[in-house]
Structures are given as C-alpha cells and as structure tokens.
C-alpha cells in the first residue's frame, strides 16, 4: 500500500515536472546562465537542456509501464500460445508477442531451441526473432520525441509487417534442412519454471528493475544523441550526404541497409545517428531503413544464430529481411512521408 501511494506521488511529480520543462529551460538559460536570446549557441543549449529531461522522463515512465506489462509474459507462455497455430496467424501472433515478451538477444538460442522443440514452425519463430529486437519501447519513445508520433507509429507498423511477412516467406521456402541436425534432438525432461506466483508487488519491482537496467544502460547514448542533435540544431546542412543518400538516388535505400548490417547498436545508440542523417538531408525512408538494418540485422546476432542455423539459412534470412526493409524505405521515399 505504501508503495502505491509513493508511486502516485511520484507520478504527480512527474507530470508537474514534465509540464514545466520549457519554463525550467527558460529559467536556466536566461536567468541563471544569462545567455543572449536568439543566438545559435543559446538555441543549441536551450534545446539540450529542454530535450534531455524530456526524453529521460518519458523513458523512465514508459519503460516502467512496459516492465510491468512484461511481467505477464514469458517465453514459456508465448511458446504455449504459439503451439499449434496455423501459419499466417502464427506469424502475426509471434510478431505481436515479440514486442511484449521479455527477450534479450543473448537468449536467442535457448528460445529458438525451445520453440523448435514445441513444434512451432521455424517461420513463426523467425517472426518472433525479427520483431523482438526491432520494435521496442525505447525505439518508439525516441522516434516519437525526436521526429513525432507519426514516425514512431509508421516505424512500429512497418516493422511488424516485415516480421510477419518475412517469417511467412521463410516458412514457405521449406528451409528445415538448413537447421543444424542436433537442434531437432533437443528434448527437455523438465517443464522449466512452472508458474511462478507473481504478486502485484513483484510486478512493480519488475517495472523498477527494468527502469534501472534499461535507463542505466542507455542514458549515455541519449545524452550524446541529444548533444549531437543540439549541435546540428539550426546549422546549415552539408550537402555531401544529401547528394549521396537523398531522395534523388534510387540506390540510397539499399546502400543504407548494406551499411547497416555490420553495424550493431541498440535503438538508443542509433537514433542520434539517424537524427544527424536527417539533418543532413537524408530522407526519412532511407534513415528508417538504415535504423531497421542496424537494429534488426546485426553481425553479432548472426554469429549467435550460426550455432543453430547453417549458413545458407542465415543468408536467406538476412536477404529476406533486407528486401523487406528496402521496400519500406522505397515506400516512404516514394510517397514522401
């Protein structure tokens, strides 16, 4: 009970702080630091002082809420939900569950093995493995606060579509023979963790833990990202990148995706770079394609998957997802969203 009251008090404080961010930034800039209004430097510093607490506040709140929501989900339950689902419905469900099931790419192998053991088609498993890293609360909050809600929603919807359709195509290609043989021999003699009793208090703890873990890991990227954004704020774009990756060039999107595959970063690390690219005149479609490629297709993940998949399947997997991302990029550039 005490905890609930404390949480409500914190929420009220959160709202008050959030509503007054602009006032606080104004006060710090003009009254404490005594900077001159209208100067480039002043604008940049204002942007930084306003944006950092804004993004941090949003992150803490949403990561907390998502942490609580995730306490209702587990890979074991997700597996049960997916067992015996027909192909397309399975892909849709797996992609959706990929967003809410707690997942870390370090657990990709046990998860893959567990799904195969339960007889879940590999295409459905791939839908899960594509959606889980690609669409997450951190990516969506950062996209929304830096580029607006429309961009965040578009990112989520197209990301889901890629996960569903790629998984479906991979299943239709009948690739089972490219999974390492030993994978099919895995048999568990135990049910794993049988229903833990989770109290409301545990769920709140889970929310707090995920705030500590996620925000603790990414705050530095956010700081750097916003600093870069503040530096670029209002300055004239350099048009070299715009010429190379602007909307005139059809090859901008594939080039961005190929560049993104060997790069590995979480959503928080990549958003500042996306911000800079867009400041420099790279179109939204190309920038989002780059981001999806970095987050969704990465060398470390490929190396992890190599334990259970033969190289042919890895090549096909990467190609199918890359084609999906390319289409998203083209779509946006074509419709000029």
């Amino acid at each position: 009970m005490k905890k609930i009251i404390l949480l409500i008090a914190l929420l009220v404080g959160w709202i008050a702080f959030y509503m007054n961010l602009a006032n606080i930034a104004d006060f710090l800039i003009y009254n404490i630091l005594n900077l001159e209004e209208g100067k480039h430097l002043t604008e940049s510093i204002w942007f930084f002082i306003y944006e950092v607490p804004k993004v941090m506040l949003l992150l803490v709140l949403i990561v907390f809420i998502v942490g609580i929501i995730r306490s209702w989900f587990s890979p074991e339950r997700t597996r049960k939900a997916l067992e015996g689902k027909s192909l397309f419905a399975g892909n849709v469900m797996a992609s959706g569950l990929g967003i809410v099931t707690p997942f870390c790419s370090c657990s990709a192998i046990p998860l893959f093995l567990g799904f195969v053991e339960a007889g879940i088609p590999i295409g459905v498993t791939f839908s899960f493995l594509i959606a889980a890293p690609l669409i997450n609360e951190v990516a969506l909050i950062l996209l929304a606060s830096l580029f607006g809600w429309k961009v965040a929603v578009i990112y989520a919807l197209t990301g889901l579509t890629i996960a569903i359709i790629s998984g479906f195509i991979l299943e239709k290609m009948k690739l089972q023979r490219y999974v390492e043989e030993w994978v099919y021999q895995v048999k568990s003699n135990q049910p794993g963790l049988v229903d833990e009793k989770i109290t409301l208090n545990d769920r709140i703890e889970a929310g707090l833990d995920s705030v500590k873990e996620i925000v603790g890991k990414i705050w530095i990227y956010i700081l750097i990202g916003i600093a870069v954004g503040a530096g670029a704020h209002g300055y004239v774009p350099d048009d070299y990148l715009a010429n190379l990756l602007g909307d005139e060039n059809w090859y901008a999107v594939p080039l961005a995706i190929i560049a993104g595959i060997p790069l590995y970063s979480n959503a928080a690390g990549i958003i500042p770079i996306v911000g800079v690219l867009m400041e420099k005149g790279v179109t939204l479609g190309t920038a989002l394609a780059f981001m999806m490629s970095v987050i969704g297709l990465s060398l470390p993940e490929i190396i992890i998957l190599k334990k259970v998949l033969k190289w042919q399947l890895i090549v096909i997997f990467v190609s199918v997802v890359a084609v999906g991302i390319t289409m998203v990029g083209f779509l946006f550039n074509f419709f000029n969203i």
Binding site: S107, P110, L193
Partner: peptide
C-alpha cells in the same frame, strides 16, 4: 535445454528450476 529453460540465466536447486 533439458531443464526446459528458455531464458538464461537459470537456477536449479535439487533438480528443480526455481528461477529463469
């Protein structure tokens, strides 16, 4: 995998999975 664990780390006490 024989313990049915899909998320690491896992803790097993006297043959029973207690945490994942």
């Amino acid at each position: 995998m024989q313990f049915g664990v899909m998320r690491t780390p896992g803790l097993v006490i006297d043959g029973k999975v207690v945490l994942t």
